[in-house]
Design a protein around this nucleic acid. Structure first.
Length: 570
RNA sequence: GCCAGGUUAGCACAGUUGGUAGUGCGGCUCAUUCGUAAUGAGCAGGUCGGGGGUUCGAAUCCCUUACCUGGCUCCA
């Protein structure tokens, strides 16, 4: 018998969920219920509207079924037998019809419940462990929005109750770190329901934003980029030439002035090419790396918006590299090095996943060109010591791409960085960018679209959750808070602040009438990295009493000693 | 965009079978001038998301609309 796997247990839990739902409710049509990375789900169609209030009933039934400890029995059946068995189950019958002629059709029975299924499953239901249903959601039949929406129940499993408690605790930790919650608590930003998907950055949030942007600027300059800025509003004629009007119009915010149509840019690439085209270019200008923190707006469907992670107005750490085909490999490798360098500064250096998306069915350009491009991307990965997985046919229609996924402190993965090859946009059919080659002839360059962080909004959302709001010193909006023990120490607190501000630190004074304990509590909850307590004793001795977020009470020291410590930490 | 569930004070939430709103935190004022995670007292703050309906009467029931949440789809 094959080894018992997590997937078998999850998939078996899905079967019992289906069985339980059919035992509890009337007229249940079942579809499919696979295991997922997290747990499992099962899709149903039934007149009753499922809600989390139904979970206890269903869970109790699952528990009862598991306790029966019945064996899962596999049986290979004929198509006719299977159809008989599935009588009345329309989704299952459609799924049966999908199974190619000649392939084995297997069923799994637990007790009196039989289901058509490829398997494999556990041997006995008790091997599943503990099952908990987590949520219910709509889901299109076969994932196609033209089809009927089924009701999907998600669930998770654990070996025993203790493990389940642990899993639930981890989910609560993720909830505690939710950037939407911390963003409000730490006064970083707010979202206005009247203006969905647009972020209002408050002083502290904007401080993080600008600090992050300045950090990237420094990296870009060192890496040979030049920063530019292009208009937020550009005319329809340009979008028609770029192809966006045909392919992306539904996602663009469009406006009109004096009978001319304009659109808010959803991407910066046409702007970059307009700069390239503003004068005659030589092959000696290549590669030309143009970075732009351009504000883009995309009219994302309302259902996809999520906090500051998925918004309609955002800024990417965007850049476009205009180069020759021969330069692709070196430019991609250079980008990979930059990306690794940046990610490691945030502690994302481990488990970086790279995906290479190749030519899709619906594509433009020659197959040979695509193969050459894909090989260049693969070679660049290898050159920078990155392993990659191939996503067959997942590339954009205009070129292949690399996508970089980082893993945060909670072990969750986020796709942020990307580099995409584009033969289309600079071509004669589109924006017609040209340079003069060594041969004196005109040539079309290739364009690389790339971003390390992706959108700053989303990346900051990830950082908030990754750090649980406790930003490293360099990113903290308020690096130091001075807590005078009473008004009598206020003047000394102000002198101390001025000394630290002069060194470039972001410092605030808590001049409220609260007692020291309350001030410490407030600063601690707001995760300020350094707190300085000052009172008459310190003033007399010319020292300050320092508390660090990481190491607690550091005792008395001079302001100079603290400055030295902070500088070494930056 | 689709399905489901939500929306009550700045935030977190109560609000029993319909009888016209409460708690905590926060804010403000006053008092306290205090040495390492919450000083005390008082005050203000809500057309219960918007609109329509049922009813003598709606936060509560119905319809509609906006937004939010969870998924699905999408992410040239």
């Amino acid at each position: 018998m094959s080894e018992l796997t997590e997937e078998m247990r999850r998939h078996s839990a899905a079967h019992l969920t289906a069985r339980a739902v059919q035992n509890v409710f009337e007229d249940v049509q079942v579809d499919i219920g696979p295991a997922t990375d997290e747990g499992f789900y099962y899709d149903f169609d039934l007149p009753h509207r499922l809600s989390p209030e139904d979970f206890p009933k269903i869970e109790a039934e699952i528990k009862r079924l598991i306790a029966l400890d019945e064996p899962f029995v596999r049986k290979v059946v004929s198509r006719e037998e299977c159809a008989d068995m599935l009588a009345g189950q329309k989704y299952k019958l459609e799924r049966l019809a999908d199974i190619p002629e000649g392939e084995d059709i297997s069923t799994y029975a637990v007790g009196d419940y039989v289901e058509m299924c490829r398997g494999p499953h556990v041997e006995h239901s008790s091997q599943i462990g503990v099952v908990k249903l987590t949520r219910v959601a709509g889901s299109y039949y076969r994932g196609d929005e033209k089809n009927k929406m089924l009701q999907r129940i998600y669930g998770i499993i654990a070996k025993d109750q203790a493990e389940m408690d642990e899993i639930v605790a981890r989910a609560e930790e993720a909830k505690r770190r939710d950037h939407r919650r911390l963003g409000v608590e730490l006064d970083l930003f707010h979202l206005d329901p009247e203006d969905p998907g647009q972020v209002f950055w408050h002083p502290k949030g904007w401080s993080i934003y600008v600090t992050l942007q300045d950090y990237m600027r420094e990296k870009l300059v060192k890496d040979g980029y030049q920063e530019v800025n292009t208009p937020a509003l550009m005319p329809r004629s340009l979008w028609e030439r770029s192809g966006h009007w045909d392919h992306y119009k539904a996602n663009m915010f469009i406006t009109e002035s004096e009978k001319r149509i304009f659109a808010v840019k959803p991407m910066n690439c046409p702007g970059a090419l307009e700069i390239f085209k503003s004068r005659t270019r030589s092959y000696k200008d290549l590669p030309l790396r143009l970075a732009e923190f351009g504000h883009c707006a995309r009219n994302e469907p309302s259902g996809t918006l999520h906090g500051i992670m998925r918004v309609r107005g955002f800024v990417q750490d965007d850049a476009h590299i205009i180069c020759t085909e021969d330069q692709i490999e070196e430019e991609v490798a250079k980008f990979c090095r930059l990306l690794k360098d940046v990610y490691s500064d945030f502690g994302f250096d481990k488990n970086l996943l790279v995906k290479l998306s190749t030519m899709p069915e619906d594509h433009v350009g020659e197959v040979a060109t695509w193969q050459h491009a894909e090989a260049a991307l693969a070679a660049a990965c290898k050159a920078s010591g990155m392993e990659y997985a191939i996503q067959e046919g997942e590339g954009a229609f205009y070129g292949p791409k690399l996508e970089f996924t980082l893993i945060d402190a909670l072990g969750r993965s986020w796709q942020c960085g990307t580099i995409q090859l584009d033969y289309q946009l600079p071509s004669a059919e589109r924006l017609n960018a040209e340079y003069i080659g060594p041969d004196g002839q005109k040539h079309h360059p290739v364009m690389l679209h790339r971003a390390v962080l992706g959108s700053l909004e989303r990346f900051i959302g990830i950082l908030i959750e990754h750090y649980a709001g406790a930003f490293p010193l360099w990113l903290s909006p308020e690096q130091i808070r001075i807590l005078p023990i009473s008004d009598k120490a206020l003047a000394y607190a102000e002198r101390t602040r001025d000394a630290l501000s002069a060194e470039g630190f972001r410092v605030a004074i808590d001049s409220s009438a609260d007692k020291l304990g309350a001030k410490i509590r407030a600063a601690t909850l707001e995760k300020v990295p350094y707190q300085i307590v000052v009172g008459p004793r310190d003033e007399a001795a010319g020292t300050i009493s320092v508390r660090s977020r990481a190491d607690g009470d550091l005792g008395a020291m001079t302001a100079e000693a603290l400055i030295e410590r902070l500088k070494s930490e930056l």
